[in-house]
Design a binder for these strands. Structure first.
Length: 552
RNA sequence: UGUCCUAUGGUGUAAUGGUAACACAGCAGAUUUUGAUUCUGCUUUUCUAGGUUCGAAUCCUAGUAGGACAACCA
């Protein structure tokens, strides 16, 4: 039976609203500002907003909050749309706050007419001084009592471009002694002679967030306007505008934004990493951006699962990045074709295997599907992973060591007869013998070995580049660092291995395809690849109990 | 010395006045032709003090702790 899954606080509110008849269907919106790329924190918001509408039979608009022409660009609009689609959601309408500029202007005029807004000539410094502090009330601006008619004329002149940037603003007339700083006559319109990415030079005055967001919600009849906790103090102003304009009463609800260990979710700081070239770009696979994790090989399914598991609440949180890794491993395990790739090769000569002979073996692409096979060449000389041999094995080591046997995955059992060192004492080659009756799938040898290792044919292997990523920062909780966050970047967050040795099948890898390199991790083709040089990003490692055992 | 928000294992999230649970992480073990996957078991929790109540994680009061708020940013 469908077990009763507990509701988060927003679902409770919505169910109560539906039950009471306040709403018969709901409308939400995802309102990014097009001034940066979307990150995992946005994914939480996207999954929430679209998920709620999906669950309760409503719709979600994609609305760009583009009220500041100075920072916003079309490039960002395009990336945001692509990211939302990639995550798997479809918006009802693609809208822009700038679509409402004319309407918003009329709303401002209405406020002036009602004596609830005035044009202020104070400088920003003067206004800051008038503002007071959280513990001290502010003082009224000398321009606060201009007549309605004068305000109307001045505001029209602002719109007409008669004044320079910063010389005048329109402020709501509320209460300079209000305990909520945002209610102390907030600026609602400012002059910016700037080119807007959509409206061009039509406007030289632009509404502030607080005078655009709630009204946009109202125009679209958004029932539940969901935002992050830092907007809690704005709710009072949000409601004030709606009430005094007597427009559709959208309601704002706030949830705690996503924080994760060893990374950060600040668009401003992420932009800094990009512009200062600490990373290769917004889609650098180490970035927590959606374009970054996508390039890294994370799947939308995994991200949605992650957003589902982290839940929604109002308390500050710091999610362990290992939960994200768990989600991606869980999905990738099901869909990733297996390949054998040797990273740090040690040559093995199989002394009783005929010289010059190549035998074609098969192996499953997915562990449980024995009909979906690929072919692998096997020969007298192969490479195995250097760490799969130990001259003097530690306890519980069940790979190769002198005199010991191991299974070559999907091939034969081999026994180490001899190892060869160079003058410096490094092991450079193993001489092994194979058990012909132990061939995978038709093993009649009766030998049971515990160790199974991956391998590639030495002369048929294809060299490819591998990029291994680690956490971007070395500290768990970036919010606690006192100094500059850039001081805590992990210098080893990217390790490039220019040539690892892959089984020949790898040349058929396609963009967007996910692989598990056996025992090494999950990988995907990077877009920097060329036909002559394939490059793979390590999405994440496999869980490694042996590594933990060794540590002890 | 203001207003607002929040407080449940290591990390998250449930429990909606009636036996504090689930996931991740951690630790053991079983299985395994990936030391993967899968499976089993275990450790660990209601900020403090009062109050209401037969009964409080839940309601009330106070305290404590953390966070937000003084951009012509969103």
């Amino acid at each position: 039976m469908a077990e009763e899954k507990s509701l988060n606080f927003l679902e409770e509110i919505i169910e109560a609203d539906i039950k009471s008849g306040k709403h018969t269907e709901i409308a939400t919106r995802f309102p990014p500002e097009p001034n940066g790329y979307l990150h995992l924190g946005h994914a939480k918001s996207i999954c929430l907003n679209f998920g709620l509408a999906l669950k309760y039979g409503g719709k979600t608009n994609l609305r760009f909050d583009d009220t500041n022409p100075v920072t916003e660009e079309t490039e960002y609009v395009e990336s945001i749309k692509g990211d939302v689609q990639w995550l798997g959601f479809t918006w009802a309408q693609e809208l822009y706050a700038s679509d409402y500029f004319a309407q918003l202007y009329e709303f401002a005029v209405t406020l002036i007419q009602k004596g609830l807004a005035y044009v202020d000539d104070s400088t920003s410094e003067q206004m800051a001084a008038q503002k007071g502090t959280p513990t001290q009330p502010g003082t009224n601006s000398p321009y606060r009592n201009r007549s309605v008619q004068e305000n109307l004329t001045l505001f029209a002149d602002m719109k007409a471009g008669k004044y320079a940037d910063g010389t005048k603003v329109l402020r709501a007339k509320i209460d300079m002694a209000h305990t909520n700083m945002l209610m102390r006559d907030p600026v609602i319109y400012r002059i910016k002679h700037a080119h807007h990415h959509r409206t061009g030079d039509t406007w030289c005055i632009y509404p502030m967030y607080d005078f655009a967001h709630g009204q946009s919600d109202s125009i679209e009849k958004i029932t539940h306007s969901i935002c992050t906790l830092e907007f809690v103090p704005h709710r009072e102003l949000y409601d004030w505008c709606i009430e005094n304009l007597a427009i559709y009463p959208s309601r704002q609800y706030e949830f705690a934004r996503l924080n994760m260990t060893y990374t950060l979710m600040s668009k401003r700081k992420l932009l800094q990493l990009v512009t200062e070239k600490h990373v290769s770009g917004w889609d650098d696979p180490r970035m927590p951006t959606l374009s970054g994790v996508r390039r890294r090989g994370y799947t939308p399914e995994a991200i949605r699962d992650f957003c589902d598991r982290i839940g929604v609440a109002k308390r500050d949180n710091l999610i362990d990045i290992s939960l994200l890794e768990f989600c991606v491993r869980e999905h990738l395990n099901k869909i990733s074709a297996r390949r054998m790739v040797v990273f740090d090769p040690l040559k093995v000569t199989i002394t009783n295997f005929p010289e010059g002979k190549t035998e074609i073996l098969t192996s499953e692409n997915l562990p449980d599907n024995h009909s979906d096979l690929r072919e692998m060449p096997f020969g007298r000389e192969i490479y195995i992973e250097r760490e799969d041999f130990m001259e003097v094995p530690v306890k519980k080591y069940f790979r190769l060591s002198p005199g010991q046997m191991v299974r070559l995955k999907s091939a034969y059992i081999i026994k180490c007869d001899e190892f060869i060192k160079d003058a410096a004492g490094n092991i450079i080659e193993l001489k092994c013998s194979y058990i012909p009756e132990s061939r995978s799938g038709s093993d009649s040898s009766g030998i049971n070995v515990k160790g199974v290792i991956h391998w590639v044919s030495a002369d048929k292997a294809v060299p490819v580049e591998v990029r291994q990523y680690d956490r971007l920062f070395t500290v768990e909780d970036l919010s606690t660092v006192e100094d500059d966050f850039r001081n805590h970047l992990n210098p080893n967050s990217l390790q490039v291995v220019p040539a690892v040795f892959a089984e020949p099948e790898i040349v058929n890898a396609k963009a967007g395809q996910h692989f598990q390199f056996l025992r090494m991790g999950y990988f995907c083709l990077d877009r920097d690849s060329t036909s002559g040089k394939l490059i793979f990003n390590r999405t994440t490692t496999l869980r490694d109990m042996w590594a933990k055992e060794v540590k002890k």
